[in-house]
Design a protein around this nucleic acid. Structure first.
Lengths: 191, 191
DNA sequence: CGGTCTCTTGACGGAGTTCAAAGCTAGTGG
DNA sequence: CCACTAGCTTTGAACTCCGTCAAGAGACCG
């Protein structure tokens, strides 16, 4: 079992070496290049992903042909296109590697088998979902009630180097502002 | 066991009558009047709630003394102040009944005991958490990328009678617009 | 019925958008 | 290893959505 994932899982429950090895057999390690697609808009999302290194983004192209970035995932995050993965609807979003990215993939078909063999993971996956929900609710509060400038600096403070690793137009879309206005914000940090 | 909750749980897994009765013993049924507080801002949130009838809202009073409503919960929703419940931080939000409301409460201390006695619920709670996350992500997409007018009508369409059951200033806050502007939107439905 | 809470109206201002064009940068191929 | 080019970022002017403030009109409760 990969050390990084083992350390991650042990934050949620205590796993024996054999359990970790067993879990490994259900995971596929994959590598993506810069800008490579992990999932295409319109397809079914059949996997959950655990990011080992790099950055993924979830986005779609809207009716005007403009990309809208909804989520990022960095190291040590589980991510998937939840609606498509859970309800097996065609995915409204694509998933793309921004940097060269390494990840583990767990398939939708394997998930129930894995949970049967390692029931402890049922709880771990619940806790992950709940923590993701708390993070999303926190994002909500920040993005609903704060100004664009505050949202930008909240993001920059939260993740060091993020602004250097991700193109500005993706950050602008995630923050729900235009690239032009983000450019202005960066020019005058503290009006 | 209450029929309504039994029907709800059976959507996620198959439960025997004895299991349902056992679950019942962990739940406390409570009734709240219009405008009564279920949880006060600043306290620890020690329960999850399943709404049988009525409406709850999660809100807080900001530094300017203005109420900000973050979430509503109607019939057949589980709700709690997630950050406080999960991480046992003092709650940043209050929970309040908008209408006379009936609910079941499950306490934080009882939850592990219940899950031990009915392990099947581990999976059910995971699915509930994941569905709540999907709903929240969907809200995010709508509220980040659509205009105030579109957000309002999306909400009205999604939940029949909602605008009649909830005061406008709470809806305005939830939609992140001023009551004044919501009033104008309602005056000119389709500019 | 009286008072408080809620909703509406209107004038004004500012944060953020749109559009168009120019300036950079970083991959790509020669 | 350099030059080209496509894509990204910056600039600026005009415009618009929506917030703020203040005052009035309903509506609901005891």
């Amino acid at each position: 079992m990969n050390d990084q994932l083992a350390a991650y899982l042990n934050r949620y429950a205590t796993f024996q070496e054999e359990e970790l090895s067993l879990i490994s057999t259900f995971l596929t390690r994959k590598t993506y290049n810069r800008r490579e697609m992990v999932l295409e808009q319109g397809k079914l999302c059949g996997h959950r992903y655990f990011v080992l290194s790099g950055i993924l983004r979830i986005f779609h192209t809207n009716s005007k042909g403009v990309e809208e970035t909804n989520l990022f995932a960095i190291e040590n995050w589980w991510i998937t296109e939840y609606d498509s993965y859970i309800n097996q609807n065609p995915s409204l979003n694509s998933i793309q590697a921004i940097e060269p990215t390494e990840l583990f993939a767990l398939s939708k078909e394997d998930e129930p088998k894995l949970l049967e063999q390692v029931p402890k993971l049922e709880r771990v996956f619940r806790l992950i979902a709940e923590n993701t929900l708390v993070a999303q609710l926190r994002k909500d509060e920040i993005y609903m009630k704060q100004s664009s400038r505050e949202r930008y600096y909240a993001l920059v403070r939260a993740i060091p180097n993020f602004a250097q690793r991700v193109p500005q137009y993706m950050i602008a879309s995630y923050l729900n502002i235009t690239p032009e206005y983000l450019s202005e914000i960066r020019k005058n940090p503290m009006t």
